[in-house]
Amino acid sequence: MESPPPSSQPLVELSGISKHFGEGAARVDALHGVAMTISAGEVVGLLGPSGSGKSTLLNVIACIVEPSEGRMLLDGEAVFDGRWLRRDLRRLRLEKIGFVFQTHNLLPFLDATDNVALAMTLTGEGLDAARRRAWELLDYLQVGHRRYAMPAQLSGGEAQRVAIARALANRPRIILADEPTAALDSVRAGIVMDLLSRLAREQQAAIVTVTHDEKIMDRLDRIFRLRDGRLNA
């Protein structure tokens, strides 16, 4: 089945985002006037050398780090305009943002199903319904046969797919991926990126991935390059 193309509906809109740490002589400017728009169905990459501000930018979009100035809209909702406009940022993350980590970060004491279902139960969904949807997601990501496996029993690729299933659990519009292929070989890295691209198109989500991995560049729709906290398109 042909996936729908990226739409023009912006899910992430940043304008004039700056972030500095410390004051006076100790001040470090991590981001300078960053502006970007990412639409539904897009997979974009944040590239740059170490210390260029990639992680800070990802943390800003994740509403973990408060920008020093600028304006940010997520899924059409203004969440920052010189200050946070929402108090319940954790709830915002729960409903709108999915996370894929460099290492899978699955909770070691829950099996694959419950790692995925947990995110849904946090929104108030019943455990049985959450587990049923977790199974659907695991099947969709082709790890349904490992639904009762504990994270320690999963291979790297399987664990990363379970982590992607968890990221998708609450049907987020934005998925933030921090070096999602760093711990995988080139074959598995390709599979994971193809999967993220397919998800972006099928679920009309925006995927922002921080990466250094040259072998996945061709799978990105756009690349944002950061240097010294400034964006070079």
């Binding site: 994740a62 973990i64 954790r90 709830r91 915002l92 993350r93 729960l94 409903e95 996370f99 980590f101 970060n105 909770l107 070691p108 947990l118 995110a119 946090l122 968890r166």
Partner: peptide, 16 residues
Amino acid sequence: LREIATLKLIGAPDRT
């Protein structure tokens, strides 16, 4: 601590 950070990141409330 890492699991707690993950829980916070994915949106788990403090009471959890």
